[in-house]
Simulated assay, not measured.
Amino acid sequence: MTIVRYSPWKTRGLASQRAEITSLQRQLDRMFEDVKAPVFRTPAAELTETDDALHLKLELPGMEAKDIDVEVTEKAVKVLAERKSETQTEGKGNTRSEFYYGKYQRVIPLKARIQNTNVTAEYKDGILNLKLPKTVEEKNKVVRINLEQN
């Protein structure tokens, strides 16, 4: 028994096959051109809780502090940032880049209420560090657990 590879274009001439393949390739190219990168990227985050505060780290590489906007409420932190393109082409050269240029956004709900007026921030080496002090009520919060005996 001989195995034969099926080709839907076998029944037509070679020129017809090439025309159909080229047409299909153009359609696929147009489809992928229409698909754009997401409007916002989500930066990686790390949240640590201590008795007195929440410590939030966000990864925002290649940005300047002036391009980062932080909004803090008692229940959430919202970070907006934008990395602007710096592509420079000299002469007839081409640039191929895998860097992401555009907007970053992240909203992080907080599991403890914080004093949003006493938040401190530091941006260094592409990492945004936020210290979010807890409210007095959260620090003094005691939860009683009742255990049942068998």
Rank of each mutant, 00 (worst) to 15 (best):
I3D: 12
I3K: 12
V4M: 12
W9H: 12
T11N: 05
R12P: 03
R12F: 07
G13F: 06
L14E: 04
A15V: 01
A15E: 05
A15P: 06
A19R: 09
E20V: 06
I21E: 11
I21Q: 11
R26D: 14
Q27H: 15
L28C: 10
D29K: 12
R30P: 04
R30V: 08
M31D: 05
F32S: 11
E33N: 12
K36L: 06
A37F: 01
A37R: 05
A37L: 14
A37I: 04
P38N: 07
T42M: 15
P43H: 04
P43L: 02
A45H: 01
E46Q: 11
E46D: 08
T48L: 08
T48Y: 13
E49K: 06
E49S: 08
A53E: 12
A53R: 10
A53Q: 11
K57H: 01
E59G: 01
E59H: 07
L60V: 01
L60D: 01
P61K: 03
G62I: 03
M63P: 00
M63E: 00
E64Q: 06
E64Y: 03
K66T: 01
I68L: 03
V70P: 00
K75T: 14
K75F: 01
A76E: 14
A76I: 08
A76P: 03
K78H: 13
K78Q: 07
K78T: 09
K78N: 05
A81E: 02
E82V: 13
E86M: 07
E86V: 04
T87I: 05
T87H: 04
Q88F: 00
T89H: 00
T89F: 03
T89R: 02
E90V: 13
G91P: 01
G93Y: 10
N94C: 13
N94V: 15
N94P: 00
N94M: 15
R96V: 15
R96A: 12
Y101V: 13
Y101L: 08
Y101F: 14
G102M: 05
K103M: 00
K103T: 09
Y104E: 05
L110T: 00
A112N: 11
I114H: 02
T117G: 15
N118T: 11
N118R: 14
E122R: 07
Y123C: 01
D125I: 07
D125E: 15
D125Y: 07
G126L: 04
L128A: 00
N129W: 08
N129H: 05
K131F: 03
P133K: 12
K134M: 05
T135P: 10
E137R: 10
E138D: 09
K139D: 06
N140H: 13
V142C: 10
V142P: 09
V143Q: 13
N146C: 10
L147C: 06
Q149V: 14
N150Q: 13
